[in-house]
Design a protein around this nucleic acid. Structure first.
Lengths: 202, 202
DNA sequence: TCTTGATACTGCCCTTTGCAGTATCTCGGC
DNA sequence: GCCGAGATACTGCAAAGGGCAGTATCAAGA
């Protein structure tokens, strides 16, 4: 019978992991995903309304239909089978990390444009990373408030947060460094004697 | 008439950028993408056979059908309109970087499993990043060989390579650090008094 | 009472992935 | 000269995922 269920994806397990913390409505899930999971497993809101149905079909979650006045809502909760599935999934080898960075495509093909276009792209990398750093700082502040809902998970959270903070810092530092390097370039292909070897063997 | 062409995506421009360097067959494009572009704009081989057709339909590339004996092949080249489109695209604001990291999902939900599962996940993060670092080192060695095809692009390449090397190093360093932190934990939710605040405000 | 924003979804089209399948060509070993 | 392995050169199909628009209802404050 499990054969008839749609195949579970990483997204399924990501949501199952959230359900392991407590029951959620789909709307709450979308907000929570944006706050936490979205940093390393970004998915559109749209998808998050379909996924829990697959979990229910596979017997890993239960759905309870409620209503606020006339407006319906569905509350999902994990089942015992769901907890077992989650534990088993943690043993499977993870897929390698994937980085998708359109700004780097623009850096890589900077020789199709001007040096000013390259500088503008690097600027954007730096400022957008700075903005995300501020968001992360605010999240850390929230975690430190007394009464934080998942206090037991703070150590685990800290491991991930530390990674993401350093990741965004790396973007800022790289863009700043790259700006300095290209400051003397005459064009994207004329680095005016700049020692690219030194950049790669620091 | 351009209205009838399928909309161009970042993937379209990424391939157009490669065509701006020189003409390629689709097969060559797939190899080249794995080597360079794949680090920051990963796409499956399958897609790379469809995409150039859209470029031709939009008038940004030309296709020349050749054959090696009975086996056909298509060589794509950029057009003048293609170079203009590429230059214009460089001015458009880039999408924010996207990181997809299944291993971090497993770290984040480590409290659904055992401390040993968490340690195994962190090990995998470190060793897989080390392997990618070796790949990058080999690429740098190749770039340094005399007669490298795109010698004029070496400075630009170096900017991107530097980013990716540091990115993989960051993964190694983070995983190593995280291993040290969890070494004394009794379970994923019992950090045995570990100071998570210190990890976030270093 | 009215507006604004939060809650709670669904439909649709397109992009992208992953995998299987189908050929042909080249080169080296025997 | 024959054979097999690996490189070259694609296509078809189903399912995952993204982006956007559209449809309601509810809660709180002016």
């Amino acid at each position: 019978m499990a054969d008839r269920s749609p195949a579970l994806t990483t997204t399924s397990y990501a949501l199952l992991g959230l359900l392991a913390l407590r029951p959620w409505t789909t709307y709450e899930l979308t907000k929570q995903v944006q706050r936490s999971l979205g940093w390393f497993w970004p998915r559109t809101e749209r998808k998050l309304y379909d996924e829990p149905k697959k979990l229910v079909a596979a017997g890993l979650a239960s759905a309870i239909e409620q209503r606020t006045g006339k407006r319906p809502r569905t509350v999902y909760a994990i089942t015992a089978a769901g907890r077992r599935a989650m534990r088993a999934w943690l043993d499977e080898p993870p897929a390698p990390p994937v980085l998708e960075m359109e700004s780097m495509v623009k850096v890589f093909f900077a020789d199709s444009g001007t040096i000013d276009q390259l500088r503008a792209t690097l600027d954007e990398v730096r400022t957008s990373a700075e903005q995300r750093l501020e968001q992360l700082e605010r999240m850390i502040d929230e975690d430190e408030q007394p009464g934080y809902e998942f206090a037991g998970r703070l150590p685990i959270n800290a491991l991930g947060l530390r990674f993401h903070v350093d990741h965004e810092r790396h973007l800022v530092e790289w863009a700043t460094w790259a700006q300095e390097q290209v400051s003397a370039w005459r064009s994207p292909v004329d680095a005016a004697g700049w020692d690219w070897r030194a950049a790669l063997r620091p």
